[in-house]
């Protein structure tokens, strides 16, 4: 691409740098020139970064500017500059809105259900899998249980609708043995349970991977020593493997807490229907409906901002806790 001369310059730069820094002391102006000169030598690297930077500016930072809609009565015709400012009016409206409170509650409840009921399943699965000596069996089970993770919720939800929905195998099967099955997907009593169970079914295999990796990194000599002492396999699992997983469990738990306002947008979107809105409508689905469907941009932006701020606080908090616990952090 570039002539050999410039490249040699760049190559020289690495060894020259410490001197360049020292020389930059006298005067602000020459300091700036030194820094600029140093950066100029890295121009190829900056050029490589440019597309990604542009991406982040256009698709991540510019929309942040769009958040002003939450403080305006935004009208697409008038634009950001022409729309009237209303301060915190939308937020005041929101917090007085029973629907918003319901949606917020649903989001947290569904997340917590998923967290507490779903959390032990991959751990137990990994512990059981660890006991299997038969390699082909182990691999087959892994292959089969990982697979649903790669399917979209549209596909997996679609399969579930065909399986447990009207005319599906589960209701037909229960009817065949004389049990009358309530319509699961349109009944508010069962909808959250369905969400939790299908989520576990789809993700438990994949979620076990981090635990299997942690098990693989436990020092085998500990097991050997325990065996010499006569510990059986249950005791080995209880007193060596399980404690060995504590660190990973902590990370997974804290990360899930950080995602508490997530609740699984795609899953809910695909599986819910107006009959179960009272228990299944979550923040994201609500934002979508009032924003993109009803076109109430300002109100939806206010809900989104509320959600994003809490999510950001949760992520920062998560990172802080991980750091305090000497675990790998996000930054």
């Amino acid at each position: 691409m570039t002539a050999a001369g410039t490249d040699i310059q760049t190559g020289d730069d690495v060894s020259e740098r410490p001197t360049a820094r020292r020389m930059s002391r006298p005067g602000r102006r020459s300091h700036f020139r030194q820094e600029w000169g140093r950066a100029w030598k890295y121009r190829e690297l900056y050029l490589l970064l440019l597309p990604a930077i542009l991406f982040f500016v256009i698709f991540r930072y510019i929309p942040m500017g769009g958040l002003v809609m939450g403080f305006q009565n935004y009208s697409p015709v008038r634009g950001f500059l022409g729309s009237p400012w209303v301060g915190f009016q939308h937020f005041e409206t929101l917090f007085a809105l029973p629907k918003f409170l319901e949606v917020f509650r649903n989001t947290v409840i569904i997340s917590l259900y998923k967290l507490f009921i779903g959390f032990p399943v991959p751990i137990i699965f990994a512990l059981l899998l660890n006991e299997v000596r038969h390699l082909l069996f182990k691999r087959t089970i892994q292959t089969v249980t990982y697979f649903p993770h790669f399917l979209s919720w549209v596909v997996y939800g679609g399969i579930m609708v065909l399986f447990i929905g009207p005319g599906g195998a589960v209701p037909e099967g229960l009817e065949a043995i004389g049990l009358k099955m309530p319509a699961l997907l349109v009944n508010p009593k069962y909808f959250r349970t369905i969400l939790v169970i299908t989520n576990i079914m789809k993700e438990f295999g994949w979620a076990a991977i981090v635990y299997l990796a942690a098990i693989a990194s436990i020092d085998p000599s500990i097991y050997e020593a325990a065996m010499v002492d006569g510990a059986n396999r249950l005791q080995q699992a209880r007193y060596i493997t399980l404690p060995g997983l504590r660190g990973v469990m902590g990370i997974v738990f804290i990360l899930s807490m950080g995602n508490i306002l997530e609740a699984g947008f795609e899953q809910v979107f695909v599986m819910y229907n107006p009959a179960v809105f009272s228990v299944g409508d979550i923040l994201d689905t609500y934002i979508y409906r009032i924003g993109l469907v009803d076109g109430r941009f300002s109100l939806a932006t206010a809900v989104g901002l509320f959600r994003s701020v809490i999510a950001a606080i949760m992520i920062v908090l998560t990172n802080y806790i991980l750091k305090r616990a000497d675990q790998p952090t996000l930054w």
């Binding site: 970064l49 930072y61 929309p63 942040m64 934002i287 924003g291 993109l292 994003s308 996000l330």
Partner: peptide
Amino acid sequence: RDLPGRQFIMLFIMVTFVFSAGIVPGFIL
């Protein structure tokens, strides 16, 4: 590690990881 401004660029990127504008501003864009 020798790239000038590396820390700043990482911060610039990490901010987007922590905070997102959400569905509606994304749609408007």
